Simulated assay, not measured.
Amino acid sequence: MHAELPPEEVGERIAAIRHARRMTQIELARASAYALASIKAIERGARIPSHTGLEAIADALGVDPSRLTTDARHDSRVRTALPLISAAIAGYDIPMDPPNRVLPELREAIDTAVKWRVGAQYTLIAKAAPSLLGDALSTLHSSEGAAKQDAARLLAAAARSADAVAYKYGSLDLSARLVELMRWAAQQADDPLLDASTAYVRTEVFFAARAHSAGLKALERAIDAGPAPAEVRPAAARGALHMRAAVIAGRAGDASAADLHLAEARRLGDLVPEGTYDGTAFGPDSVRTHEVSVAVSLGQEHVDRALTVAREWTPPDSLPAERQSGFWIELARAQLWAGRADDSFESLKVARVIAPQHTREHPWARETAGTLRRLKRADAETLTNFAEWVGAI
């Protein structure tokens, strides 16, 4: 295995995750079909696992292989899967072969894919997405009544998980098609909360096109059309839309609208427990991460807002990995603007530990790392290595 991380760091990551899972070395050896002596050698960096062995260890730990090493082959596996995802949805409105899984099995598999998405485990999603989408489409076409609505919700969840891969890896045309598939599925489900979740994801299309003002209008229309926030789930759905609207308003340079939407998100966040989930995690901590997003979106003159949040609060481990890493990536951008280059680099490294694939594919992580590398050419090679890893040089 030709890993970009040295064997010692791969071993340290395996040991750290094992400890976090409260597993012994014996338990990891049994679960991964490795000898105990081999696990000990791998953890101290004296032995390098094979590519297949690394996947077995990652599976035993319940993480994406990229959490253990930044081997570029995981990136290639994702990109190889993108055409298969595209093919799986090409005839989404045409009934095809019967599904390979019954509805309970499909639900369990898609629930797992959703967990991978919030954990930024894109390699696992990419591998599973084509068959999940195919089975979800076949199930929807072969169902009626309430079962069809249930299948439509599952299809939307599968499409969103696949979209996380397509969007993060720059396949924007495929991402837009997956968003449209979500919208089509939402129509079949006749579910206002799913409509709200789809509107949240659709914002990616506006971000990609830099059509921020149009995206803000679309979100505000979705907020007006959504159910009243009289209960926890509708309140969370509406709050998530306000969070998203605040960020895109910031990108549009509309500070007033950004502040209004952020204030409404805070108000709704206080009404629901953190982690309330309807396609998007929502709660007080999620709103806090978006306070940094809004400040950075508004530009350098608002950098103090982002730094103030970070002085008082950092994301808890209970937040989705992708949201945690996004906080640190955006904070790194703010710290760079404030002239705090060392702090900026430390934030990028934290983001990589939390969600390496998300960090590696994030354009702001790449841009910040490239700028840091240019500003600090005489620095230790760790900065250069990071900039190479993220594709900044």
Rank of each mutant, 00 (worst) to 15 (best):
F206C: 10
R21P: 01
L84V: 06
H19G: 15
A136R: 08
E27G: 14
A392G: 10
E12K: 15
L331F: 07
H290K: 02
A387K: 03
T24F: 12
D224A: 15
L133A: 03
P99H: 04
E381F: 10
R374V: 07
L319P: 01
L336E: 15
S347G: 01
R333V: 07
S32R: 00
I14C: 08
D64C: 02
A240K: 05
I354F: 08
H51G: 13
L178K: 00
T289D: 00
S318W: 09
R233A: 12
G170C: 10
A365P: 01
R107W: 08
D285F: 02
D71G: 12
A295C: 07
E231K: 08
I17T: 07
V292E: 03
A240Y: 01
P284Y: 13
A240W: 03
G283R: 04
A378L: 03
K217V: 14
A15E: 08
A31G: 06
M23N: 13
W389A: 15
G62Q: 05
L103C: 06
E4C: 11
P6M: 05
P227R: 12
W116E: 07
A209L: 06
A306D: 04
A257D: 06
A156P: 01
R288G: 07
G299W: 02
K115W: 14
A3N: 13
A211T: 08
A338I: 00
L103V: 09
I110V: 09
T276F: 01
G134W: 02
R117Y: 13
A306N: 10
R177D: 00
A81G: 04
A257S: 12
E220R: 10
A35D: 11
I42W: 09
T69G: 03
I110W: 04
Q335C: 09
L36V: 04
V350I: 11
R177W: 02
E346C: 14
H141N: 06
L216G: 06
V309N: 01
A240G: 11
L268N: 10
I26W: 10
K127I: 02
R30F: 08
G134F: 00
D75R: 14
R47S: 15
E8T: 12
R117F: 15
T123C: 11
R117K: 15
R73K: 14
D195K: 08
R183L: 04
K148W: 13
D190H: 06
W328K: 01
G269E: 00
Y277M: 05
L132E: 03
A136K: 11
I17Y: 14
S318F: 10
F345N: 03
I48W: 12
T139G: 11
E312L: 14
N385I: 02
A87N: 00
M243K: 04
L319F: 09
L103N: 12
T289E: 01
H261S: 07
E322T: 08
L28D: 05
E4K: 12
K168C: 01
D191W: 05
G370H: 00
A365F: 12
